[in-house]
Amino acid sequence: MAWQFTGDRPIYIQMAEHITSGILKGEYQMGEKLPSVREFALMASVNPNTVQRALFELENMGLIETQRNTGKFVTLEESRIEMSRNEMGKALVADFIKSMKALGYSGEQIKDIFENERKAGESNESENA
C-alpha cells in the first residue's frame, strides 16, 4: 500500500516527515540501518529522486547518517531525535490550536476541553487494560 501524500506540499518534505515519525515511533531504531532509496521508493510508490531528496533533508537535520558504502543509518544521538520530537509536537499543537480558534474556542476553553478529553482518554485506556 502506497503512503498517503497531500497535494499542497512537496512530496519530499512529506516523505521526510513520514520517515521522521517512523524514527520517533521507534519503527526505525537508533543506529539501525534504513531501507535503501529503491526500497523506500517501492514502499511509498514515489520517485527514487524524491526519496533521495527526503533523505538528504534528514541528513541535514542530523537525524540520519551515511556510512560509506553501507547505507544510511538512524543517528545515535538521542538529543537530535528529541529535538525533532519537540519540533513535531509543537507543530501539531500549533495546528490544533489554530483549528480550535477557527471553531470559535477561546484559549481558556481549549485548555478545559483538552483537559477533559485527556482524562476521558486515560480512563478509557485503564478500562481496556
Binding site: 497535494g7 499542497d8 524524491t50 531528496r53
Partner: peptide, 13 residues
C-alpha cells in the same frame, strides 16, 4: 513536480 508544489502549493492534478 516539487517546484510546482513549492511555488504554487498545488499538485499537478
Amino acid at each position: 513536480t516539487d517546484s510546482l508544489r513549492e511555488d504554487l502549493g498545488k499538485s499537478i492534478d
